[in-house]
Design a binder for these strands. Structure first.
Lengths: 356, 356
DNA sequence: CAATTTTAGACAAACGTTTGTCTAATTGTC
DNA sequence: GACAATTAGACAAACGTTTGTCTAAAATTG
């Protein structure tokens, strides 16, 4: 049970005291040299000796002890719903990349939308000395006890900056594209209720549709509910829609993953994309470009949203004032999964053929 | 520049001393109660008072201070080449999931295969108090100064356990499948040199091919080199192969992502998968199932490899002896991207047609 | 040369815990 | 009732840093 010397059996690891003793100096002096503390006069000769010794013993100051002194740990905590592929991991990668570039380390904690976890984690992170928090697509009930920046927040919180997509712009981009291709009967998808974007995106679509003079048929709405990040989320909904016999020439998907499931469901029903039905994705995740057919989609700059959030948090930590709302712009990426709508007659024929 | 009260202006956060003062007890007594330290007699009444106060002030002991005392931080560091989608993030998700279940936290650090980073990170992690390291697909030159478990290690290291796939089994599975479908002219892919699996997988394929009486033509070999995790890695290689006019009826891909690029390249050349060419993936990443056509692939239990590695590390940390080599078994997942080989005559005709 | 300033560094407190040792009061035993 | 044993808790050292205060020696000034 005891561990005497957990791994290497050397004399633990070099610390300030050992270094000081070896050099015949006091720990404080060594500390001054290594931190280049201003206002302390240490001759160059001594500085050199100290640095050489630090190098020799591969000394690395304990962040732990340093943090106990009230200094920054250079560490932040990232809260997100889920590990694995898709939206979250893209944002995470943006956050992580920037943090590493700035010599920050980070904890990743996932909560699967469970309230107890979401509320417990900030405290646990604080106990581990993190300086701040980035929360991605996470429903925070109250501002955490640490400087925080959110990405795709579920609700505005005082003192917490939020990085989010311009959903109105996104909705206009996607619906304009479909309208220009002649689509009128468009199936819509509503994201899972636990997704922060679900309602705003839906609302934005409704507004944009009205603006563009497109009708929105409730019978063509698909409500996602499955808590999954694989394409199966949209599969049953699309199958049901196909079986219902209702006509549609395009599907506006909640995200690219849902678009993949949609394409597969259509494919299995003998409907070709984009010849028979156009499919529009959302997010532009990495694999969107390499699907067959490649996905036309609304690109969210996910990595950039992540890095922006991280950057803002670091600024906040260094005392700067940062804006509360940071809106980023989407972009329409036209690929193969959308095409001009067929006229009604052709469509009906296809439908009859397909439904047997 | 100074920060007086970085965030909330309350009296910082509850600590042992404050709690003790409030209760009229010494910090040690409070500590004994909260940690249920055995061998200390504290009457139930006092215990209740302490617990109530801790609750009231939302007291959370500082892991920092605790770790300084030599206790475990309940934190591990995860080393991997890259953030984002694919192989690494699946393994990461397995590791992260298990760690969170065990109330461990973790740092993720990525190094992009850069040597200086790989060698610097273990020390930096130690300075932050991590108890151990999981290194995924990472080329470690020497055993880190902390208990370590690797996944898909590049080279064996003394005292470091490694979780890896049974590549011979995998090669037999894939080549048997292709042989049974009648494929003889099979294009092979060699992974990027920085990928730990590249050589072993190649060698395993060569061996399995010999075993099964399949010939391996060097002209049908594709060498990946691009440091990317998008399907573009295989795209140029396949295009070149097609242009060369060499005949092949199947492509054995290094991974699913490469398979996606392969399918796309074939598709663009007017070759249908699996009708004209069968494509076999490797890994079975989440989206493999939802490609069109869905990928036949060799499943690596990536999540499980991650969780196994994490589990082993925790065991090691608690003093148990763990095996040095943990081999996991692959599984053939047959989907749509492979089909019986067409006979040579048909193939040639197709080729002529395609090449114009 | 005496007085002052600067230099080079030591010393000690503090950060928030854990834990070994100590003590006063209470309880139990004969 | 005298003694021992137990109970309830205090006290202090330690972990590895940082940092404010102090001091002896050296250098500068008049």
């Amino acid at each position: 049970m005891h561990k005497s010397s957990s791994n290497s059996n050397g004399p633990r690891h070099a610390n300030l005291k050992m270094l000081a003793e070896y050099l015949g100096l006091s720990p404080s002096t060594v500390s001054f040299v290594l931190n280049e503390t201003p206002g302390r006069s240490i001759p160059e000769a001594t500085r050199a000796r100290v640095k050489a010794a630090a190098e020799k013993f591969n000394y690395r100051p304990s962040m732990i002890a340093r943090t106990l002194q009230g200094k920054r740990m250079q560490t932040i905590g990232i809260l997100l719903p889920e590990l694995g592929e898709g939206y979250h991991s893209q944002v995470l990668s943006g956050v992580g990349d920037l943090l590493m570039r700035k010599d920050y380390f980070y904890f990743t904690v996932h909560h699967r939308h469970r309230k107890e976890l979401v509320s417990a984690y900030p405290g646990l992170l604080r106990a581990r000395g993190v300086d701040g928090i980035v929360a991605i697509d996470t429903h925070l009930e109250e501002p955490p006890p640490l400087p925080t920046v959110t990405v795709a927040a579920h609700n505005p919180l005082p003192g917490v900056s939020n990085v989010f997509l311009d959903e109105d712009h996104a909705a206009r981009l996607s619906l304009t594209h479909l309208r220009d291709l002649g689509h009128k009967k468009i199936a819509f998808m509503h994201g899972q209720p636990f997704s922060s974007d679900a309602d705003t995106r839906w609302l934005a679509s409704v507004n944009a549709a009205r603006e563009l003079g497109l009708e929105l048929h409730e019978e063509l709405a698909i409500y996602l509910s499955k808590d999954s990040h694989s394409p199966e989320i949209s599969y049953p909904g699309i199958r049901k829609l196909i079986k219902s016999g209702r006509q549609f020439t395009a599907v506006l998907c909640f995200n690219d993953v849902a678009a993949m499931g949609t394409i597969r469901a259509l494919h299995e029903a003998g409907l070709r994309v984009p010849d028979d039905v156009s499919v529009l994705g959302f997010d532009d995740i990495q694999s969107a470009e390499y699907q067959v057919p490649s996905l036309t989609t609304i690109r969210q700059p996910l990595q950039k949203m992540g890095s922006t959030a991280a950057q803002l948090l670091l600024k906040k930590l260094s005392g700067e004032t940062i804006p509360e709302a940071i809106q980023v712009e989407p972009e329409l990426v036209v690929r193969e999964s959308t095409a001009p709508a067929k006229d009604a007659a052709t469509r009906s024929a296809v439908y009859r053929a397909v439904r047997r």
